[in-house]
Design a protein around this nucleic acid. Sequence first.
DNA 1: GCAGCGATGTTATAACATCGCATATCCGCC
DNA 2: GGCGGATATGCGATGTTATAACATCGCTGC
Lengths: 154, 154
Amino acid sequence: MNSDLSDATQALERAAASCRERGASLTAIRREVLALLYRTPKGIKAYDLLEQMRQTRGNASPPTVYRALDFLIEQGLAHKIGRMNLFVACRHGAHSSPSLFLVCPKCNGVTELEDPDMVTSLYASLAATGHRLDSPEVEISAVCPQCVAGREAA
Amino acid sequence: MNSDLSDATQALERAAASCRERGASLTAIRREVLALLYRTPKGIKAYDLLEQMRQTRGNASPPTVYRALDFLIEQGLAHKIGRMNLFVACRHGAHSSPSLFLVCPKCNGVTELEDPDMVTSLYASLAATGHRLDSPEVEISAVCPQCVAGREAA
DNA sequence: GCAGCGATGTTATAACATCGCATATCCGCC
DNA sequence: GGCGGATATGCGATGTTATAACATCGCTGC
Ligand SMILES: [Zn+2]
Ligand SMILES: [Zn+2]
Ligand SMILES: [Zn+2]
Ligand SMILES: [Zn+2]
């Protein structure tokens, strides 16, 4: 049975609720963008997103999608992978602990990984040099399991 | 006394030697770009680099600098910080172990940090999910010591 | 009504990066 | 010296990613 759809719907409703709690609102545009992000778990580029948007909203323009993305990132609902100019939905409602973003150089897929031990070690390293961790996004280039196996997924 | 200059000169000569070992050649353009990277340890953008280049080489164009940067990155002499579209010289001749790149969101400065413990922990995390580390560049957003102290360096 | 405000529409442009093809330079070989 | 391939550079155009600037809409409170 089709649980993906209802999963996505539930996730959208949770997202809307968490925005409301913070006094922000998940408007129709933002909701559509977030839904598209949910549909492409490996990440999507802003202009591909724009193209998708235009299918239901002919007048969508770059600011339309960038504004929605900025909002979603502010709300912790999405992340940007700078290395690849790729945007992904956050897999963890709203996480306080940083995530590792594993970017596969073969298939360009992104995997979000939470790992408390890593983060502990990370904090220690940074503290030792006087730095303070700022964002929840740590980008790492790492070949994904599929591509390690040689299957070179799309 | 002015040891920066001779340091940079030495570094350039080491770089040239390591290129030669690999059958590559550090040509005049590439050498100039690398020298500019050495002069801006916090990282520099491609088009700022281009502007600098034009002061001594009026006909420099975007491909001029991007080609040189690609070469330097291939040779392990420079790194790209995807998050910021910033390029930095590698602080470690040619390093096999990955580095952490701490990008300060206040001053946009980049610090390259080698930390074996972190890397060990990182390998463990990745192996646990079937990933294999690919590139020597791990990007982390972290406020630098100067900015932690509130000095908001340029 | 009508200010105040957040969101959106719209146009243009800034900023970053690559392509394609011609020319030049180097180097080993005849 | 002359040739041929590989590498490097010049140069114009183009492609890709992101933001600036300004107008407008729709709601809420007064
Ligand atoms: Zn997340
Ligand atoms: Zn992959
Ligand atoms: Zn390095
Ligand atoms: Zn700083």
